[in-house]
Design a protein around this nucleic acid. Structure first.
Length: 564
DNA sequence: AAAGCAATAT
DNA sequence: AATATTGCTT
C-alpha cells in the first residue's frame, strides 16, 4: 500500500496501527515475532504460506503497509517469490542467515531492508519507515535514487562475479537514473532516522510506477543541438561508488555514513550518472583498474539509463582503455587525415557516444600526439625518413605500421594489433597504433604497471622486444639501451636509479653511445646509426696524418657527426 | 553544418 | 585530472 503524505499527516499516533504482513513458515517464530510487533501497536497479519500471503496481497493490497518475510531456508528459492511478486509492498527480509550474497539478493530483488535475526524490538521499531509514501510534491525521493543507483550497480557487479543474475536485476540495473521529478514513494528518509538499510525499495521496484520502463529505453537522448541523435551517457560503474556502498548493505550498523555521504555527493544538485559504454570487445581484455567499467558482460550493452527528459545534466564519458582502443582503431582505420569526429563516431558504433564526445577526445588525442610524439622523435636517433611520421598508416589494419621499424623501439611488446596492449594497467594508450611509446612527460592517467614507479615508465618497465634487444644489447649495456628509449625527452629522472645514464642530456647521451659504437667497431651499430663511408673515414684519417688504423679511433667522433 | 582549436567550465 | 562546453574561425 502506498500512502500519501496526507495520509501520513492524518495518521493519528503513527506508526501505531501500521499493518504488517508477516510471512514466516515457521509458526513458532512467526508467533514470537507477531507478539513483538503487536507490542508496538502494529497490526500483524501472519502467514505461514507464501502463496497465501501473496494472494492476500493481491486481493487486498490496502491491507498492508509493510511486509516482513522470513527467508525460508528449506526452499530453494526461499521466499524470494514473495519479494519478487509483491513489488508494491515494501518488504523487509529477515533470516538467520546473513551471508552477504543472500542479503544482496534480497536487496536486488527489491527488499527494503534485511534484518538479521533475532529481531529485537529495536530492529522492529523502525519498520514503519519503509512504508511507501507517495511523496507528492516532495522530492525526497531524490535522496534515495542515487543510493539505489549505486547499489544496483554494485549488485550487478557482484552478481557478475559469480552469482546468478536474476532476471529482475537487469531491470533494476536500468533503473540507475536520477529521477528528478518522480512522484515517487518516499519514506521521508531525510526527516527520520534512517533504518539500517537504505530505502531503495521504491527505486528498485520502480516498475510499479512505470518509471523504470520509462527510462530504460531512452539511452539516446536528442540533443537540441545535435541532429544525429547523439546522447549522453554516463557511467554507472563507478568503482568508488560501488566500493563505498558495498559495505552498508550487509551491515546495517556499519558505515552508513559513508553511504550517506556518497549519496549526498551524487545527489548534490546535478550529478547525473548513467552509463558507461561498453561494447563488444573483441580482442581486448583490458583488465585494468578501470576494468570494472568494461566487464565482459557489460560489454555488449549499455546499461543505459536514461535521462529524464526534463533535466539532465550532461555526463561524462568514461574513456576506458577499451573505449579508447575502439577510438584509436577507428582513427587508424580512417587514417589520420580522414579521422573526423563524425566518422570516428560511426566506426566506433558506441551507443550513446556523441560526436562531441569524440571530438573532444580527438582533440586531446591529437594534442597528445602533436606535442608528445614529435618531441620524442626529435630527440631520438636520426630517422631515416622523417616524413613517415606525418603520414602514418592510413589503412593501418596491419600489424606493424611502416614506420614502426624505423622507430627505435617500442618500449613494450609489439602489439599484435592495434588494439590490445596487453598491459595490465592500461598504459601507453595513445601508442597502441604502433608508435613507440613511453609515457609522455606529462601526466597521463593511464599508469604504467602497478608496482612500477609511475615515473619510471621508461624502458626498464618492460623488457625490450627481441628484435631490438638483440641488436642492441651487444652494443651497449642495459643502461645504454635505455638511453635510446628514453633519450632526453622525458623527465623521468625522479624515477630512475641515480646512476643511470638518463640523467644526461640527450646530446651527451648520444655522444656517449656513438663513442661506444666507435670504440667497439666489431659490434653492430645501434639502430639509427649509419657507419661513415670508408672514403670519408680514410679522408679524415689522412687529413689527420694517420695511415694505419689504430684499434681505437677516438678522433673519429667529430667526423662521424659530419658524415652521418 | 561540421571541424578544429583554444580557453574555460565542471 | 579528465572531459565537456563554449566561442570562434575555417
Amino acid at each position: 500500500m502506498i500512502c500519501t503524505t496526507n495520509d501520513l499527516s492524518a495518521w493519528k499516533d503513527f506508526p501505531k496501527g501500521l499493518k504488517v504482513l508477516l510471512l514466516d513458515e515457521d509458526s513458532n517464530s512467526a508467533a514470537e515475532l507477531k507478539s513483538k510487533l503487536e507490542a508496538m501497536d502494529y497490526i500483524v497479519y501472519t502467514f505461514c504460506n507464501e502463496n497465501e500471503a501473496l494472494s492476500a496481497v493481491s486481493s487486498r493490497p490496502e491491507s498492508f503497509h509493510v511486509a516482513i518475510v522470513e527467508i525460508n531456508t528449506n526452499k530453494k528459492n526461499g521466499s524470494f517469490k514473495f519479494l519478487e511478486t509483491a513489488k508494491d509492498l515494501p518488504t523487509i527480509m529477515t533470516s538467520n542467515i546473513h551471508c552477504i550474497s543472500t542479503v544482496m539478493k534480497c536487496i536486488a530483488l527489491g527488499a527494503v531492508e534485511f534484518l538479521k535475526k533475532p529481531l529485537s524490538e529495536e530492529k522492529l521499531r523502525n519498520i514503519w519507515q519503509h512504508v511507501a509514501f507517495n511523496a507528492v510534491g516532495t522530492d525526497l525521493s531524490e535522496s534515495v535514487k542515487p543510493v539505489e543507483e549505486s547499489l544496483v550497480s554494485m549488485l550487478y557487479l557482484q552478481l557478475e562475479n559469480g552469482e546468478p543474475k536474476d532476471k529482475d536485476l537487469d531491470k533494476t540495473q536500468d533503473a540507475s537514473v536520477i529521477h528528478e521529478n518522480d512522484p515517487e514513494p518516499s519514506t521521508g528518509s531525510d526527516k527520520y532516522p534512517a533504518p539500517s538499510t537504505p530505502q531503495i525499495e521504491q527505486g528498485g521496484r520502480l516498475s510499479a510506477n512505470g518509471d523504470c520502463q520509462d527510462h530504460a529505453n531512452c539511452s539516446i537522448e536528442k540533443e537540441s543541438s545535435e541532429q544525429d541523435g547523439e546522447s549522453k551517457s554516463v557511467e554507472t560503474t563507478s568503482d568508488n561508488t560501488i566500493a563505498e556502498v558495498t559495505i552498508p548493505v550487509g551491515q546495517p550498523q556499519g558505515p552508513r555514513d559513508t553511504m550517506v555521504t556518497e549519496e549526498a555527493d551524487l545527489v548534490d544538485g546535478t550529478k547525473g550518472k548513467s552509463t558507461t559504454y561498453s561494447q563488444t570487445e573483441n580482442g581486448v581484455n583490458s583488465k585494468n583498474s578501470q576494468a570494472v567499467a568494461e566487464k565482459p558482460s557489460t560489454v555488449s550493452g549499455i546499461h543505459s539509463s536514461c535521462l529524464n527528459k526534463a533535466n539532465r545534466k550532461k555526463s561524462k564519458v568514461d574513456w576506458t582503455p577499451a573505449l579508447h582502443k575502439k577510438f584509436v582503431q577507428a582513427v587508424d582505420q580512417l587514417g589520420i587525415d580522414q579521422a573526423i569526429p563524425s566518422r570516428i563516431l560511426e566506426l566506433m558504433k558506441i551507443e550513446g557516444l556523441t560526436r562531441h564526445n569524440v571530438a573532444s577526445h580527438l582533440q586531446k588525442y591529437r594534442m597528445h600526439r602533436k606535442h608528445i610524439l614529435p618531441k620524442e622523435d626529435d630527440r631520438r636517433w636520426p630517422q631515416r625518413d622523417q616524413t613517415q611520421r606525418s603520414c602514418y598508416p592510413h589503412k593501418p589494419i596491419i600489424a606493424f605500421p611502416p614506420h614502426y621499424s624505423n622507430h627505435v623501439v617500442p618500449v613494450g611488446p609489439l602489439y599484435p594489433m592495434w588494439g590490445a596492449p596487453p598491459y595490465p594497467s592500461s598504459i601507453q594508450m595513445w601508442g597502441s597504433q604502433g608508435y613507440p611509446l613511453w609515457q609522455p612527460t606529462e601526466s597521463w592517467h593511464w599508469k604504467p604497471y602497478p608496482g612500477v614507479h609511475a615515473d619510471a615508465w621508461g624502458c626498464p618497465v618492460m623488457p625490450p622486444p627481441h628484435g631490438y634487444s638483440s641488436a642492441f644489447t651487444q652494443v651497449s649495456s642495459y643502461q645504454n639501451a635505455s638511453v635510446f628509449h628514453c633519450s632526453g625527452t622525458m623527465d623521468n629522472r625522479s624515477g630512475m636509479p641515480p646512476n643511470s645514464v638518463e640523467h644526461q642530456p640527450a646530446e651527451e647521451v648520444i655522444d656517449k653511445v656513438v663513442k661506444e659504437a666507435i670504440n667497439k667497431p666489431w659490434l653492430p651499430l645501434p639502430l639509427g646509426l649509419k657507419p661513415p663511408s670508408t672514403d670519408t673515414v680514410l679522408a679524415e684519417l689522412s687529413k689527420q696524418g694517420i695511415s694505419t688504423f689504430p684499434p681505437h679511433i677516438y678522433g673519429l667522433n667529430s667526423s662521424c657527426h659530419g658524415t652521418t
